[in-house]
Write a protein that binds this DNA or RNA. Structure first.
Lengths: 219, 219
DNA sequence: AAAAATATTTAAGTAAGCTTAAAAAAATAT
DNA sequence: ATATTTTTTTAAGCTTACTTAAATATTTTT
């Protein structure tokens, strides 16, 4: 399958795991930076290839085959991220940028080699789950966003849901890393801000960031 | 630059390092498995982009920019080969197949990371020289093909010039590997065959193979 | 429920990278 | 030196993945 097709099914799949699902062509177009017309064209094309179900004016729905393709691309993306992070000590932003291209040009054979080499990890350095070779993925996610945490409790960081360089730079500088521990010291609910303590530093985060940082309570 | 363009300049560059140089569009077309017409089209296109000089019915000549692009792609290809061979213990054929795709989707940033990680090697596992980040390549090659060796002398294998799976499988089975030592026990010049001794085994090679195995005499 | 705003689809067109078939030039053989 | 063969180029056409503009359907607002 072409890069365009792989990115299209990937965008639909990822959109479906968002809170606000909108898999109509226009929204996928916005995510991919192409015109609505191009997305409609592509949707018809992929329906012909049995990768999705297309009905005029309706939301796009991946078929089993379409979902499998999307998961295979996501698997390669996240394996590359884990591998590059470990091997070359590249930042969360750098590994994402590189994996965005490598994911389309990696054989299943090599993906399996990478996975074995890493000990078949279930999560990448952002905390995102890595689908296995059969397209099975860990979807049960009991973690909550930092916005919904309680004052005085300790949490471990389980997921950094972003593609943004500035966010990752900020995280890198402040020790906000997959697996690390934070203490929520104050919730400013009116101003939608959260104060946390990490590595003996106190930092104040606004909603933009607390919404995409996921954590698990330490009991 | 697109994959098609990168492969085109790479094919011209590689053809120029062959014994029999023929960089007219038809020959490049044959190497790439495309039609002559497509190669002529592409040649005009690349001339517009200042990657090569094109004159009707004449051989194609890479410009400095074209050569630099070709060397950059070859650098990435050979770095990936070296890396995959070392890290995942993949065969010479497997690394070539994988690198053929990865070479086009690797940033200079990552290529440099790989190079540093490997200790900036000058040769890949086939013995082919790896261009450095400035596009400089070791071209002085004092090695000779096994066909031109002398009976009773010892040689180290310096290069396996092929893309062929069967050849690499044969090499793998018989210890014919970059850096290994062979003793030439007999040259059957009439039948164009060479008998060698390696790892206490005696094997007889025909011209097809001895022409693409390059060695250096041990004095 | 109708009007206004928004989203989707259709239509027409473009560029890249190919194809085949025919025409033209160059290389080779006699 | 000419005829034959081979190679290169031109011409016309195809597919993929886009674009913009216009038409049409849906959704939201009032």
């Amino acid at each position: 399958m072409s890069v365009a097709i792989e990115n299209f099914v990937k965008a639909i799949y990822k959109n479906n795991s968002n809170d606000v699902k909108n898999t109509k062509p226009g929204n996928i177009a916005k995510l991919l930076g192409i015109s609505n017309a191009a997305a409609t064209d592509m949707a018809k094309n992929l329906a012909n290839k049995n990768l999705l179900n297309y009905e005029k004016y309706k939301a796009l729905e991946l078929t089993k085959a379409g979902e499998k393709l999307a998961l295979n691309v996501i698997r390669k993306h996240r394996l590359w991220e884990a591998f590059l992070h470990k091997t070359f000590d590249m930042s969360l932003h750098e590994i994402h940028r590189e994996a965005e291209f490598l994911e389309h040009e990696t054989s299943n054979f090599l993906a399996n080699k990478i996975s074995t080499y890493l000990g078949n990890p279930k999560f990448d350095p952002h905390g995102d789950p890595i689908p296995n070779a059969n397209g099975e993925i860990t979807t049960i996610d009991t973690s909550i966003s930092l916005s919904n945490t309680k004052e005085g409790k300790n949490y471990t960081i389980s997921r950094l849901m972003s593609d943004d360089k500035e966010f990752f730079d900020f995280c890198g500088l402040n020790g906000l890393k997959y697996g690390n521990t934070v203490l929520v010291t104050k919730q400013f609910s009116k101003n939608k801000m959260t104060q946390i303590s990490i590595n003996n530093n106190t930092i104040l985060l606004n909603e933009d960031f607390t919404n995409i940082i996921y954590v698990n309570e330490i009991k």
